[in-house]
Amino acid sequence: MNINLTLIGQAISFAVFVWFCMKYVWPPVIAALDERSKKIADGLEAANRASRDLELAQEKATQTLRESKEQAAEIIEQANKRANQIVDEAKEQAIAEGQRLRDAAQAEIEQDVMRAKEALRAQVSALALTGAEKILGASVDEKAHSEIVEQLAKEL
């Protein structure tokens, strides 16, 4: 068991091996390991985030659904109210229109009656004159007696 040059040879080869390992073996492997662990961490985080997002989305969806339901109910209610209102208005309008039509008809009737009376009066006065002419046998001076005839006609 001699200590000899082998010792130095071993030390040199050891140094070379360590250098080679440090330069060409360790860095790529450890870089890959680090990168993979980072990838895994990222993946886990992404999964967490995704599940959180999903939860939020679900919450939002239910909220939106609830809101739209409320809105729909409100709209229906409003529509109902409006419909009732429209029906009421229509009723009122119809009543008013009926009234108006009846009034107009009434007025027309009255006018017609007046007009008929007028015509009748004129005819009566003419008839009276003719009658009177026949009774008196003489023509009545229309100018002189028109006043009387008119008075007569008015009395009719």
Binding site: N2, T6, Q10, F17, C21
Partner: peptide
């Protein structure tokens, strides 16, 4: 002191190179 163990050197360097070759 100025002698060298050829077998020791052969196997140690050979195995060192094997290790580095595999790992590289």
């Amino acid at each position: 002191f100025w002698a060298i163990h050829l077998d020791t050197m052969l196997f140690s360097i050979g195995l060192g190179i094997l290790f580095l070759w595999l790992f590289r």
